[in-house]
Design a protein around this nucleic acid. Structure first.
Length: 322
DNA sequence: AAAGACGTCAACCGCTTTTTC
DNA sequence: TGAAAAAGCGGTTGACGTCTT
């Protein structure tokens, strides 16, 4: 259609976002709500294209995003839904609303692919890993219905899962502190200690997921055996339920029959169901764009090392806002 | 200690789909 | 109804940190 891409424009800044830019963007969204991204650069003075602003918000600044290590259950869900849906990261992300599609995609490419390869080599060392399809690996995986091998590989297979994810956020926090120090408006009550890491595992928050029971039951098959037998030491059933914050489950477009059919459906069917969910997402985004989170919360989320310790009721409020 | 290899992830790019007017 | 704009999406890139030699 001849519309020039925004990144071709002269003077558009690229590369990592600075804390100052983050604050400006968050402030603007607090005032006007997400959406109308085209006007964001001009109205905020940000030297970023509208698309960059939108991506920064949706992938990083948007409240409710969980950062840090993926839990074994999240891993299992990603593996299974990847096998069902293929590289439909947005669709997969809809099952893990606290994770962005970008995060899931990165995690798949950097961690899970390798884990699955190793998993398959354990199951069948005679099969060359190069010819291994995700589906066949996942089939074996599902047949075993036991994530222990993947979640808790033998010592020889155990991978370093230390979180380097935090580093950039940590840097932002440090920079933010310097910036905030020079900004009397927000100085006193928002600043946290230095060297904070925002995305600790403890950031997991409990939410009210409404009618997600069917999906929870469905996904219980992804729990490690130990946990199914009540001997697990990873997370409790309640925490597992909380992890499955399927806001979409409350929507009529994704009903019980759909949920119940998920484990056995063909990829095509699953993809069709995903298409259904796209419309749901659109509606959700509309609703989200109509409501603004309080800036104080957003700033706190950006600044507070104990973002994960934000009171539950605050998180509940937030989930209603978006 | 230095340098190259490797791993990770935020951000970019370009295409497609949806929405708006 | 169709064109333009906006948003969604997935593959790729590049910067940076860590590991290995």
């Amino acid at each position: 259609m001849g519309r020039p891409p925004c990144f071709d424009k002269f003077g558009v800044k690229k590369g990592p976002w600075t804390p100052e830019e983050d604050i400006i963007l968050v402030s603007y969204i607090q005032e006007h709500g997400p959406g109308n991204w085209r006007s964001v650069p001009t109205k905020t003075g940000l030297l970023r294209c509208s698309k960059s602003c939108r991506l920064r918000w949706t992938n990083y600044l948007r409240p409710g995003i969980k950062r840090g290590n993926f839990t074994p259950h999240e891993e299992g869900m990603i593996i299974h839904f990847q096998a069902l849906l293929g590289n439909k990261w947005a669709a997969i992300a809809s099952y893990l609303p606290q994770r962005t599609d970008n995060d899931i995609k990165n995690y798949w490419n950097t961690h899970l692919k390798k884990k699955l390869k190793k998993f398959h080599s354990v199951l069948d060392p005679t099969v060359a890993s190069d010819s291994t399809t995700t589906q066949s690996v996942t089939k074996s995986f599902n047949e075993s219905r036991n994530l222990d091998i993947i979640s808790n590989p033998a010592p020889s297979l155990r991978l370093n899962q230390s979180c380097t994810y935090a580093s950039s956020t940590e840097n932002i926090s440090r920079l933010l502190e310097g910036w905030m120090r020079s900004s009397p408006k927000t100085d006193t009550h928002l600043r946290g200690p230095q060297n904070k890491i925002l995305d600790e595992e403890s950031n997991e928050k409990k939410c009210d997921f409404g009618n997600s029971a069917e999906m929870t039951n469905l996904l219980q098959c992804y729990q490690p055996k130990d946990e199914q037998e009540g001997n697990g030491d990873l997370i409790s059933q309640e925490e597992f339920d909380s992890m499955l914050s399927f806001e979409n489950m409350n929507n009529a477009a994704w009903d019980k029959s759909t949920c119940d059919s998920v484990p056995d459906q063909s990829p095509q069917t699953a993809a069709a169901n995903c298409d259904q969910k796209v419309n749901v997402t659109t509606e959700r985004n509309k609703l989200r764009s109509e409501k603004n989170p309080p800036l104080s919360f957003l700033e706190k989320w950006l600044l507070d090392e104990s973002a994960g310790q934000v009171e539950d009721d605050q998180m509940m409020d937030l989930s209603q806002m978006f």
